[in-house]
């Protein structure tokens, strides 16, 4: 087993024993039943008391063979409305950006990444926008921004 695969198996084990409430994270299951440990399907719940509340946001983590030396790439669905998410859905966040731009460290766990991204939802970094629509709306029309965030939350209802 490669180093990346071994670490990911360990992350999965740790996750099953202790995970943040309401979050989901598991390696992708292929149609033939085989598990692809390099691609994880995750869901992040919006924090209570924020306009993101009520949404369960799908996030895909893609791990390279060089993980954990390099961070996973984290993707919301394309077009996701948030100032620090690129048009492709890719999340721009210090803890999942490689050094020296970011602050990724191999010791960062999956739970830390997912909780970090949950935190980012309601606390965007406006100094480093990744898309225009959400950035401009946040800057100039805050009420409308909040409205759009609520609308987006409704588009991602909890699984049942």
């Amino acid at each position: 087993m490669s180093l990346a695969a071994a670490r990911l198996a360990q992350e999965r084990k740790a996750w099953r024993k202790d995970k943040p409430f309401g979050f989901i994270a598991k390696p992708e299951q292929q149609p033939d039943g085989a598990v692809n440990i390099k691609k994880w399907k995750c869901y992040i719940p919006g924090k209570a008391g924020t306009p993101w509340e009520g949404g369960l946001y799908p996030l895909e983590l893609r791990f390279a063979d060089s993980y954990p030396d390099t961070p996973p790439e984290c993707y919301f669905p394309a077009g996701f409305f948030h100032p620090n998410v690129y048009g492709t859905g890719k999340v721009c966040l210090s803890i999942v950006n490689p050094q020296p731009i970011g602050s990724w460290k191999p010791s960062i766990t999956l739970a830390q990444i997912l909780v970090g991204i949950q935190e980012l939802l309601d606390t965007p970094n406006i100094q480093s926008p990744a898309q225009m629509p959400a950035y401009q709306c946040y800057r100039t029309k805050r009420a409308e921004y909040t409205q759009l965030v609520r609308k987006q939350a409704a588009q991602y209802p909890p699984l049942d």
Partner: peptide, 9 residues
């Protein structure tokens, strides 16, 4: 498995 966690919502 032993030790698995379940969310009660």
């Amino acid at each position: 498995e032993d030790g698995d966690t379940i969310d009660a919502m």
